[in-house]
Amino acid sequence: MSVQTAAARTTASPPAHLPERQPLFDNAKFAAIALVVCAHTWMPLLEVDRTVAAAVLTIAAFSMPVFITLCGYFARPRPGRPPVDGGRLISQLAIPYLVFQLLYNLVGMALEKRLAPIRLLEPRWLTWFLLSLLVWRLSVPLWTALRHPLPVAVLVATGSGAMAAFPEELALGRTLGFLPWFVLGLVLRPGDLATLRRPAVRRCAPFALASVFGAIWLASPKLLNPGWVEYTESAAELHVGYPVWVAVRFALAGLSLVAGAAFLALLPDHRTRWTALGGASLYVYLLHGLPLKLVQASGIYHARRLHHWYTALPLLGACALTLAVLLATPAAVRFFGPLVQPRLDWLLGPRSGEPVRADGQA
């Protein structure tokens, strides 16, 4: 049985009122989340080699924004479904957040060999995304009520940089910083994405990605603080003036937009051997942090062999891609399903408890 067929059988069928999945979106979700795993795997070597730094920063600049934009696209109001479905938010985001927040805190305490209080509103490691996505999806009616939601979201994100420091609660820096990407997904229409499939756009896409990489390579010595691309620090925390913070953020956003569009343009829009893996993108995201933390604790990153881009990028990249594929297989979905998508029939009403797909997208 092929991976594609097996994954299709482990993923619940969509309700009748929903359109059939488009391969491009599954291709994009898996490719984007696999690149996120690569970036996280390379991140400890950010200051070792300039080319590694440029690769990490380039991928980090567009992979998560693309994934968040797709989340916004699938959160658009649809006929027959309320703008905010409380049951889905509980089953897809709230409960998995509590489960992984507890799990990551316990693993963190074990690795650090010390006890620490567990604060539910202060996300640990990768759980920020679930909490931020919960906030964004709860705010969908606000954005759809505005005439020009995207400029407003940009203003909110821009204004957040003036804060003295981002509080840990609700992952506020990332929640506000990535907000425009989620709202971009809300306002996108199928025709906008179809523009990226034009032959001329696809021919230009590799040159666009190369140009973004070149620009970030030139700027990488000034961008070694991951807070720039991870939206975790305000101007004061990055020790720059607010106008500089705004200028750099807008420049990075422009590069992210170009790179993200080129990335989507290069992806196939037909089914491939790895299309079905896109249905388990949430599994890959939530689970990959645990083995990476163990690898980091092992001291492998101190190996001199990994302090060169020509060894670090291919060796660690191959390991990261293998991990992403393994975590998206049907066996992983079945095994980790109780953690990522626990059955809540006992808690939710019949309508709220209807099956959802393995990526949490309806």
Results as ranks from 00 to 15, higher is better:
A219L: 11
F213L: 02
A34D: 15
V84G: 07
G337V: 10
R198D: 06
A31S: 13
P190I: 14
G360D: 08
A261M: 08
A358V: 08
L196W: 04
G173E: 00
K113H: 12
R174P: 05
W181V: 05
Q92I: 11
F30Y: 09
V212R: 07
L209D: 12
L223F: 03
Y73K: 08
A60I: 00
R88S: 08
Y310D: 13
L142Q: 03
A31R: 12
L286D: 10
L133I: 07
A320S: 12
A235P: 02
N225G: 05
R76D: 14
R249Y: 04
S139V: 04
V154F: 13
L327C: 13
I90F: 08
G289V: 03
P180G: 07
D85E: 12
T195H: 12
V37A: 13
L24K: 03
V248Q: 05
W143C: 01
R197N: 05
A165V: 02
A75T: 02
W143Y: 04
A276F: 12
P355K: 02
V56E: 05
W42Y: 15
G72V: 05
G159T: 06
S2V: 00
A7M: 14
L294Q: 10
V154Y: 03
P330E: 10
F263Q: 05
A332G: 10
P79V: 03
R249I: 04
A61V: 10
Y301V: 13
L186N: 09
G254V: 00
E233W: 07
T232V: 07
N105L: 00
L170C: 01
G299A: 14
Y97V: 12
A303Y: 13
I90M: 10
L134S: 01
L138E: 06
M109C: 15
R273V: 12
P123H: 00
A219W: 14
V183Q: 00
A164L: 10
P83V: 00
R50T: 14
W42L: 15
T322S: 13
M64V: 12
F213M: 00
